[in-house]
Structure formats: structure tokens, C-alpha cells
Write a protein that binds this DNA or RNA. Structure first.
Lengths: 259, 259
DNA sequence: CTCAATTTGTTCGTATGTATG
DNA sequence: ACATACATACGAACAAATTGA
């Protein structure tokens, strides 16, 4: 009870869902392997400090997902792993980002030519004087949506390929334009929550976490020509990076440590 | 009603909390600015397709957080912004990662010398034959926890500085060891959920989202000497990277595009 | 000052969900 | 499976405060 209230103060999500989240994670990470018999109800009751019925609700949830199989008199067994989507491996440099986007299937769902200005943070360049066109699209993989892209494209860029931008991803096209210079390109990844529109498009619940990626291209005049807010489904997001890319291997028998 | 059930099917988080999440985000992103009068209850009812009382519960939640101020007869106003923690800007190369970790305050809370092997994925090197020591620590900033580090340190590395590793961050110490070579170092970022221990240490709810970072160092023999699973509080996590770091500016009047 | 429109605040009844023991 | 308590959500009606005509 005391534990319940303290947990409730922190999250307000129904307890059995919290419990189910943790158990799902255990299966996912292999802490409970497929075929294993998991702890008994009594052990779980004690571990989570909740009532038996609450544990059973959590198990029922995972049973519906096909992850658990409770058998009277025997125990509860792991009957499957949550399917990971993790298709995406977010690129960490321009070339590979363009390459990966080029392969994507996307559906353009909205275009507003006279859009409001995107609000640019420090270091994201200055706004294009001719204004922006707003483009929204959804990216699919195996017929399932995995990201929503909200893009502000500088008007003078958009006009170079009004037709093309309506149907294909903008970034590769921009990369191909010889008369467009890109002085800076950076992305910032954070964790956000799904707005009603995003939730709808990604088919997730309102307020569920998403991986939010802001991608900004700045031209040689310091103008932000491409400002994208991308919301990735959390299960489709992974970002792997090599930390020694620039410097190469370090240390070893003979200290080559600069510093 | 139909919308309710469909949302409920997707998330099962209480509706008023979902609504509050979205409204909090709107304040955070500046869609609703401080001092603004936000939409009326009736408009919000329609927008979210929920009952008046549900909207009021969401507003009450944000009122308690100091973000909204509802005034009878006048409207509801934005009275503050959610405090951003966002201290962290995760490093994307080895040098700066070592430097940033060096500055952190950490509390070592657990050490197990004969720990189970970490399960290594493809490309993460092979396990150290002498086994690993498990170290768990919490990193603080302004007295608030922002990350939990679960580290498997190869036994032969741990023994080089048993005392030191008990009190300070391991990574900078390893970087200083001239007789330790690091052939590969990479990290993978995903979105995870808080386990009971992590939730407790970060003071968040069970199953709440976290930014999970796996950091692996592999020595020149292909042995994983440092395997860390780091769970960041979602509000303390931001990862900014320059996409043109390697190639420099591209395009412009005269196409200099290599390929 | 009064009136009407607008907007938040409160309450009732009902149904279902969550959690305990 | 049951009894109990409380939380969540709906819809609707009414009350109270503010504003401007």
C-alpha cells in the first residue's frame, strides 16, 4: 500500500500496466527467456508489492500480446518475444542519411505553401525571408508507419521542384542540387510525447513517448533552408555511433596518448 | 466514445493524463506561450473528443505543476514553462565523452565482483575469460539523479584499480591506462522503460520511458572490457550531432560533389 | 447599471476500470 | 469469486465570475 501510493505519485499509470511494462522488458532483454517458467504469482506479488489480482491483470495483458502463457497448476511460461521493429538505424553523417532516406517509402499527407515560420533555436540559422512551405509526410515500412516528418522547406528551394517535392523525400533532391550549398547540417535527438496528430499517424496512444529528431540544414548565407521535426515510433528507433571514428584506436602497449 | 475506446486500445493510460501530456508539450514547445489564454474548455472538449470533466482534470494536473492558471469567467492562462533539465548533451566521440564524464558527480551504490556475464550482441566483442565485475552508480546534477549506470567491467581491468573504481567514474581511468588498448568504442541509443530499480533511483514511475545507452569498449584482442547500460532520465537527455563533421560543407555554386 | 455572452466551476447520475484483501 | 473502495470518464445541467455592449 505504501509502495503503491509512492509509485502512484510518480506515474499515475495504472499499476498493472506498470508491472506489465517491466515484465515485457524482462522478456525483451532475455532476462526471462522463451520457454522459461517465470516467477510464481506469490513471488511476483512480493517483488512488486501489489495484490495477486494486479499481477494477474498484468499477465493477462501479456498473454493477449502472445508473450506469456499461464497454465493452471504448472506455472506461467514465456511463449514469445515482443516483436522489435528497430529497422531504423539513424544515420550520423550526411551521406548515409541521404542514402537511407532515398530508400524510404513515404506518403505526403499535407502541403501548406504559405506556412508560419518555424521557430529556430540558437545556432539553427536565420529564417528565409521568402518564407517556408510546410510538408508533412509519414514513412512506412512493411505497411506500418514508423515516423512522421514535419518539414519546413524554404520557399525558394521548394519552388525548384514543386512537383517532385510533392511525391518524394526532399533531402536527397536537395543534396542533388548543385546550386544549393549546405554550410551546416545537424540533428538533435530528444525524447518527446505524441501529439494527437502524431499519435494518430503512428497509431500509438496520445502522449506516448517518441524519439524526436530535429534536422536543420543551413546554407552558406546562414539561412535555414530545411527544418524538419521528425517523430519516430519508439520501437523503430536506434542510433548507433562509433566513438573512435575520428581518432581511430587509442592506447596500447606504447602510449600514443596525446593530451 | 468511439475515439475514446480507440485511444484506450492503444495506450491504456488514463485519458486525462494523455491530454495533460499533450498540453504540457504545447507549453514546452511554445505553441502556447507564457501569458497566453489557451483554448476554451469547449474547444478542447471538441479537439480531444473528451468530456469537460476530463479536460478539467488535465488542467488541474498542469495547475499543480504551475504551468496553467484557470480563472473563472476569463479563461485559462499559461503561467509557466516546464523546467527543462536537458543538462546533458551526450558526447559523440571518445575524447569529449571522457571529458564530460570526468566532471560528473556520481554515487557508487553497488559492486559485485563475481558477476554474471553481460550478454553481448553481435559486434560487441567476445566476453573476457576472467569474468566481470558489476558496478552500479547513479549520476547527479543539482542533487537530482539523471542517470543510472550499470557497468560490467572486465575483471582484469577492475583489478588494476579496485580502490579507484569504487569511488570515481571508470571510463576516464581506463582512458588513462597506457597499457590498455581500445580498438573499438561505440554506443547505441534506444528508448526503454524504467525497471523497478531504475525507476527508484531516477525517482520516476515504473515503466516510464528512459533514454537507454549501451556503451561498449573492445580491446585489441577483441575482448569487451567495458560494457555499460546507461539509463538517462528522459528530460535530461539530448544528443546533438553535426552531420557534416567528416566531409565539411558541400554543394554551392561550383559543384564540388565527390561521391 | 443591466443584460447577454462567454467562460470556468460544481454537481449529479451512471458506467466501467483499478486495486485491495 | 466476492465484497469493498476509490479512480476514471461520460453527458448534462446549473452556478459563478468576467467582459463588453
Amino acid at each position: 500500500m505504501s509502495k503503491l501510493t509512492s509509485l502512484y505519485d510518480r506515474s499515475r499509470v495504472p499499476l498493472y500496466i506498470q508491472v506489465a511494462s517491466v515484465m515485457r522488458q524482462r522478456i525483451d532483454t532475455g532476462f526471462w527467456m522463451e520457454g522459461d517458467k517465470i516467477s510464481t504469482l506469490e513471488e511476483l506479488e512480493r517483488e512488486f508489492s501489489v495484490a495477486r489480482v494486479t499481477i494477474r491483470q498484468a499477465i493477462e495483458l501479456l498473454r493477449e500480446e502472445g508473450l506469456l502463457d499461464a497454465q493452471q497448476g504448472r506455472g506461467t511460461f514465456v511463449s514469445g518475444k515482443p516483436k522489435h521493429n528497430r529497422w531504423l538505424n539513424l544515420a550520423t553523417d550526411f551521406e548515409s542519411m541521404v542514402a537511407s532516406i532515398r530508400e524510404n517509402v513515404l506518403k505526403r499527407i499535407q502541403i501548406d505553401e504559405n506556412a508560419a515560420m518555424p521557430d529556430l533555436a540558437e545556432g539553427e540559422g536565420k529564417a528565409a525571408p521568402e518564407g517556408y512551405t510546410f510538408l508533412r509526410s509519414v514513412q512506412y515500412n512493411n505497411n506500418e508507419p514508423f515516423s512522421v516528418v514535419n518539414l519546413y522547406l524554404a520557399q525558394h528551394i521548394f519552388e525548384k521542384g514543386r512537383e517532385i517535392f510533392s511525391h518524394v523525400a526532399a533531402l536527397p533532391k536537395i543534396a542533388e542540387m548543385d546550386d544549393v550549398s549546405i554550410a551546416h547540417a545537424h540533428q538533435t535527438v530528444t525524447i518527446g510525447v505524441a501529439s494527437p496528430e502524431t499519435a494518430d499517424l503512428l497509431r500509438i496512444g496520445l502522449g506516448e513517448p517518441t524519439a524526436d529528431c530535429r534536422l536543420v540544414l543551413v546554407d552558406s548565407d546562414g539561412v535555414a533552408i530545411y527544418v524538419a521535426d521528425i517523430h519516430y515510433h519508439k520501437n523503430c528507433f536506434a542510433l548507433r555511433m562509433d566513438l573512435l571514428e575520428k581518432t581511430g584506436p587509442r592506447g596500447g602497449r606504447k602510449a600514443n596518448g596525446r593530451r
